Structures are given as C-alpha cells and as structure tokens.
Simulated scan of single mutants.
Amino acid sequence: MASLLKRLVTWWDGQSVGTQLFTKRFGNEVGRDEAGNIYYRNADDTRRWVIYEGQNDGTRVGPEWYGWLHHTFPKPPTEDPIARKSWEKPHKENLTGTEAAFYRPGSLRRADVRPQEDYEAWTPE
C-alpha cells in the first residue's frame, strides 16, 4: 500500500501510476539500453518516451537513444544502429554530487587531500 501511495505522488524514482497506465494503453516497446532503461513510442510515432531503471535522470540516456527520443533519428538504435568511431568513449551519466565525481588535483573535496597547517591562527588575548 505504501509503495502504491508513493507512486501516486512521486515521479523522480521510477514511473508514476499515470505513466504506467499511459504506457500500458498506448505504448509499444521499442528497445532497452545497457542501463536497463526501456524505450516506448505510440502507434503513430508522434510520442516517444523512456521508463528509467532506478532514478529518473536524463543523463542516463545514451546519445543514440537521445537522438531517437528527440526525433533526430527516424529509426531507433535497435533497427538502425549508429556506427561508433574508434576514438569515442562510452557514454557515462553525470556523476556530479556523487562520490565518483571529478575533482581537480588539490581540491579540498578530494579525499586524498588534506589542508596544510602552515599558519598559526590568531586568537584574541
């Protein structure tokens, strides 16, 4: 009961009940990506959407699926795969705010850097 109530009022952690009903009624599954996201379209291909595996975060969609979702590519990557260049790196979601985020060398946010105690703080007498 608690999970149903949570899905009725939240959208950021998986699909809501409204999205689930719309998908069940009008959605045709097109494919899945390596992250587990499921992609859908309606019968006349005017609407395209994704159901995320886990939290909803647009950076978890790879470039080939992003192009299909925004009608840049007419066919999904399952029907017409995009040729990858040898120098292209694999897609990575945005890691800002996580422990895997990038911090420049010397940043105080890095776990391996400690501030230097090269001064003596003034204290009033």
Rank of each mutant, 00 (worst) to 15 (best):
T78K: 09
P77Y: 01
D80A: 13
I51P: 00
K75S: 12
V9P: 01
T19N: 09
Y119E: 08
W122F: 13
N56K: 15
K89D: 11
G67E: 08
I38W: 01
D118T: 05
G14D: 02
R25W: 12
K89T: 11
W87E: 08
E64V: 07
D112S: 06
W12T: 10
S16P: 03
E64R: 05
G62L: 05
K89E: 13
S3C: 01
Q20T: 07
E79C: 12
Y119P: 00
R110V: 10
T96I: 10
E99C: 01
V9H: 06
L69E: 05
S16N: 13
K75R: 15
V9Q: 04
P63S: 15
D33N: 15
G54V: 03
R41A: 15
L4A: 11
T98R: 02
G54C: 09
D33G: 09
T72G: 03
V9S: 10
G18A: 10
E88S: 11
G62N: 15
P90A: 07
P115R: 10
Y40F: 15
Q55F: 05
H91T: 10
E93H: 03
I38P: 00
I51W: 00
R109T: 02
Y103S: 12
R7P: 02
R110E: 02
E120I: 14
E64S: 14
R114C: 00
W49S: 11
G58P: 10
Y119H: 13
I38E: 01
V61S: 13
V50R: 02
G36C: 11
R104L: 14
E88D: 12
K85Q: 15
R110A: 10
R84Y: 03
K85P: 02
L5N: 04
P105I: 03
D45H: 08
A83T: 07
A111I: 08
K85Y: 05
T46Y: 00
T123N: 04
K6E: 12
T123K: 12
W122M: 06
E99I: 01
R114P: 00
A111K: 13
Y40K: 08
P77N: 03
R110M: 05
P115T: 00
R109H: 15
H71S: 05
P105K: 11
T96L: 09
G36M: 07
L69M: 07
M1L: 14
H70K: 14
G36P: 08
E125V: 02
G58E: 11
R110N: 12
M1R: 09
K24V: 01
